[in-house]
C-alpha cells in the first residue's frame, strides 16, 4: 500500500523487507544494477519488472518501456548493453493481438537499440492473478573502459547535468490511464540512453561520477538518492529546469510537481566541475541529449538535502515523494 510511486516508501520497502531477505545482496548504495567481474571483464547485470497501465500510450508501450528501462539501467551503471532476456506474465484472457503488438514493440525497440533479446519466458496465470500483462527484463552489459560511476561518488563542487526535458512520461501515462485529455499534446519520452552515455563517457571516464535516470519518483527522488548516498548537498536552479510548456500546463492542472513525475528518456549526471562544459557539449552533440542543461551543483552544505533556487529568489527544499503526496499546507 502506497509503496508504488517510487519515492521514500519504495526505498523503505527495499531497505526493510527485500534486501534483508536476500542476505545482504545489494547492500549499501541503491544502484540500478550490479557489477559482476567475470574472467577479467566487468559485466553489469540489471533486472526490472514492468507494470504499466495502460499498456499502450502515446510515445510507447510496455514492450518498448521494458527494453529501454533495462538498457538504461545498464547505461546508468556505465555499461554498454550486450543482451536482454524478457519474461512475460500474462493474465488469462489477455488479447493475443495485444501480446503480438507488445512483442513486436520489444523486437523493434531492441533492434533500434542494437541490443538483442537472447532468451525469455512466458507464463499464463489465472484471471485476477495479474493485471493483463507484466514484463520482466534482465540485461547484461559490459562496463565501458574506465567508467566508474555510483550514486555515492558525488563530490562537493561537482556539476549536475540533465540530458533533456522532464515530466512527459508520468504525465502521459496518468493522462492516458484516466482519460484526462492531455494525450494529444504530450507523449512519453521513453528512449534508450546508452548511446548518449557512450558519447559522454568517451574521454571523460574518470570525470563522470554519477549517472541516474530519474524514473519513478522523478528528478527529485533521484537527486535525493544521490545526496543521501554521497552525503552531500545538491543545489539546482529552477530557471534551468526544462519542463515543456504542455507538460507544465498539465502538471499545473493536475497538481503535480514536474520534479516528482517519472521520466523514461533522460538522465542526470554528476560531473567534475572542470569537465562539465566538455561533457555538456558532448551530450548536446548526441541526438538524445540535444536539450541537455546544467541543472545545478553539488555542495558540502546541507548534506543529504536537495535545495532548489526558485524563480522567485527563494531556496526550496526538494524532497522525495512521500506516499501519494498529501498536501503539507495547513
Amino acid at each position: 500500500l502506497g509503496h508504488g510511486s517510487g519515492g521514500q516508501l519504495s526505498a523503505e520497502l527495499l531497505r526493510d523487507v527485500v534486501l534483508p531477505g536476500l542476505g545482504g545482496a545489494g547492500e549499501g548504495v541503491p544502484e540500478d544494477g550490479a557489477v559482476v567481474p567475470v574472467g577479467g571483464v566487468d559485466l553489469v547485470v540489471s533486472t526490472d519488472a514492468f507494470v504499466v497501465s495502460p499498456l499502450f500510450f502515446p510515445g510507447g508501450d510496455i514492450g518498448a518501456l521494458a527494453v529501454h528501462g533495462t538498457v538504461n539501467d545498464l547505461a546508468m551503471m556505465g555499461a554498454a548493453p550486450v543482451a536482454l532476456a524478457v519474461a512475460y506474465i500474462i493474465e488469462e484472457g489477455f488479447a493475443v493481438a495485444d501480446l503480438r503488438r507488445v512483442t513486436a514493440s520489444v523486437g523493434t525497440a531492441a533492434a533500434a537499440a542494437g541490443v538483442p533479446v537472447v532468451t525469455g519466458d512466458t507464463k499464463v496465470v489465472g484471471r485476477g492473478a495479474a493485471d493483463g500483462l507484466f514484463v520482466t527484463t534482465t540485461g547484461i552489459g559490459r562496463r565501458l573502459p574506465g567508467a566508474r560511476v555510483s550514486a555515492a561518488y558525488a563530490r562537493p563542487g561537482d556539476v549536475v547535468l540533465l540530458s533533456g526535458p522532464i515530466g512527459a512520461h508520468g504525465t502521459t501515462i496518468l493522462s492516458a490511464r484516466e482519460s484526462l485529455g492531455f494525450e494529444a499534446e504530450i507523449a512519453s519520452d521513453t528512449r534508450p540512453l546508452h548511446r548518449l552515455v557512450a558519447t559522454m563517457v568517451a574521454g571523460a571516464e574518470r570525470d563522470i561520477h554519477v549517472m541516474r535516470d530519474p524514473t519513478r519518483g522523478g528528478v527529485a527522488s533521484a537527486l535525493n538518492e544521490i545526496a543521501a548516498a554521497s552525503r552531500v548537498g545538491i543545489e539546482i536552479d529552477e530557471a534551468a529546469l526544462p519542463v515543456p510548456a504542455p507538460v507544465a500546463a498539465a502538471c499545473e492542472l493536475l497538481g503535480l510537481d514536474p520534479l516528482h513525475v517519472a521520466n523514461e528518456g533522460c538522465l542526470l549526471a554528476v560531473v567534475a566541475a572542470d569537465r562539465a562544459v566538455a561533457v555538456l557539449a558532448a551530450m548536446r552533440s548526441a541526438p538524445d541529449g540535444r536539450h541537455a542543461v546544467r541543472l545545478g551543483e553539488v555542495v558540502d552544505a546541507h548534506p543529504g538535502r536537495v535545495v532548489m533556487n526558485t524563480l522567485m529568489g527563494g531556496r526550496r527544499v526538494v524532497d522525495m515523494l512521500v506516499g501519494e503526496q498529501l498536501p503539507r499546507i495547513c
Partner: peptide, 12 residues
C-alpha cells in the same frame, strides 16, 4: 473538465 474528471477518477 479536467477537475471534473480528476474528481470522478480520484486522480490526485
Amino acid at each position: 473538465s479536467t477537475v471534473r474528471r480528476m474528481v470522478e477518477r480520484g486522480v490526485n
